[in-house]
């Protein structure tokens, strides 16, 4: 039973890595520290701007704006509207507002307030200002690859 070395770096990759390891940042580092330096990913500024998402619906605000219409809604319609708000379903709430306007249950001004509320956006709370960048290994040879202490020692020899 013998161990067969994994695929080695190409000669071109070795040349690039040898050049890299002459850099001052590697001076005095142990091979294990160098292996780690080549395979960690530093955080970099997120190149994508923070997206804007539809603002979550606020039942109190919407029901205030639709107050004059709500007295005309059946109990079933009120339940459905309430469920749509709870589900953050902007399209359905807009349909109910359109209905209320068409039937004259809300003023144009109140309808416009509802539409404006539905069109509000907020910054995506899940967006991260910094994201992991490439490993130094990837920057150097164009692919991520693990590196062992023995391989670092060979490159430094």
């Amino acid at each position: 039973m013998t161990v067969i070395p994994r695929q080695a770096f190409t000669d071109a990759e070795k040349a690039i890595l040898r050049q890299e390891l002459r850099g001052a940042e590697y001076a005095g580092k142990t091979p294990e520290e160098i292996a780690r330096m080549l395979t960690i990913r530093s955080l970099i500024p997120n190149p994508k701007p923070q997206p804007q998402l539809p603002k979550p619906l606020d039942k109190a605000v919407l029901f205030q704006q639709l107050q004059s219409a709500l007295v005309n809604f059946s109990d079933q319609a009120l339940i459905r509207l309430s469920e749509a708000v709870d589900a953050n379903d902007h399209a359905t709430v807009k349909l109910w507002a359109d209905l209320a306007l068409a039937r004259g249950w809300v003023t144009q001004a109140d309808y416009d307030l509802v539409v404006a509320e539905l069109q509000k956006t907020v910054p995506d709370p899940d967006w991260e200002s910094h994201i992991p960048g490439p490993t130094r290994m990837f920057e150097l040879i164009g692919r991520d690859r693990g590196i062992s202490v023995a391989e670092v020692e060979e490159l430094m020899a």
Partner: peptide, 10 residues
């Protein structure tokens, strides 16, 4: 088998 192999993040 594999000794002190640094496995990249990500």
């Amino acid at each position: 088998l594999d000794t002190s192999l640094s496995v990249p993040a990500g």
